[in-house]
Amino acid sequence: MKFLVLIYGNPESRQVWDGLSDEQKAESMTGYTALNDALAASGELVVSHSLGDPEATKQVVFRNGRPMTTDGPFAEVKEQLAGFYLLDCPSMERALEIVPQIPEAPFSIVEVRPIRDLSSFS
Rank of each mutant, 00 (worst) to 15 (best):
I109Y: 11
F3G: 05
C89F: 07
T57I: 02
R116I: 15
A26W: 02
F107D: 13
E104M: 10
I115N: 08
G9K: 10
P90W: 09
S21H: 08
V77I: 14
D71M: 05
M29N: 15
L45D: 04
C89P: 04
L86R: 11
A41D: 10
V5M: 07
A38K: 15
E79S: 12
G52R: 14
S108Q: 07
A82E: 10
N10I: 00
E76A: 08
P103N: 07
R113W: 03
L20T: 02
V60P: 03
S108C: 12
E27Q: 13
F3C: 04
L35K: 12
R113K: 13
E104P: 00
G72Q: 13
E93G: 12
S28E: 12
S48A: 15
I98V: 15
T33S: 15
P90T: 09
K78T: 14
I102R: 11
I109E: 13
S91D: 00
I109D: 09
L81E: 01
G19A: 04
G19W: 03
S13M: 13
Y8N: 04
S120C: 06
L118R: 11
V46A: 02
P11E: 14
P11V: 08
S119Q: 14
V110D: 00
G65R: 06
C89A: 05
G52D: 12
L39Q: 06
T30K: 15
T70N: 10
